[in-house]
Amino acid sequence: MHNIVSAGESAILIYFGDKIDASLPKKIGNFANQLKNTLSDVVIDVIPSYTSLHVSYDLNKISFQAFFNKVEGLLNQQESNDLILESKITHIPVYYGVEVGLDLERLLAEKNLDLNTFIELHSSQEYLIYAIGFSPVFAFLGEVDERIQAPRLATPRIKIPAGSVGIADSQTAIYPTDSSGGWNIVGRTLLDLSLNNPDNLDKFKTGDRVQFYSITRDEYLAHGGKL
């Protein structure tokens, strides 16, 4: 099932479903690759998200209608031979401590949980990368266990330090650089996810997986962590 709409004079948006579904990111990622390979002369960029794929194309070379038809043809073809690629898993060390987890104390009280249970709930599962966006290397991960879900802050913070790990409803994410934002901050990683290391651009891909693991305060400090 898919639906294509126009997204501008040189872009379309392909919907692969109308609700968040763990089977979609890999499917969308695969189709994005197929599109880039098959129509490399006219496709400029792809932006995969939860249920959709944004595709910009070169209007110098192909009209909206002709591009639409080509994409639709490929989608129909793909539905008959859905190939599944390997999905990569990245492990991320996190210090879950109240000095860096700016909202941790409040969440523990609200959820009536002790710290160890909270850490267990956040770090025991493999999260699926649903989308990359908001800023470079910012991966939207889901789904967070219901017992530790929390809505975004009513007033976003002006500055959240790089490496902060946050929760917003059923999603969790790491802020790659210092930025503003309204997610509930529960810990921090020392991993540099900024573009100072250009390889980080390929760190996360839609459809891949991420798992957090807990490090102690001492380990965090020993590796240069700031409180």
Partner: peptide
């Protein structure tokens, strides 16, 4: 709604 890719000028 569910976040999706943005075109310049949206």
């Amino acid at each position: 709604m569910i976040s999706e890719g943005i075109s310049y000028g949206s």
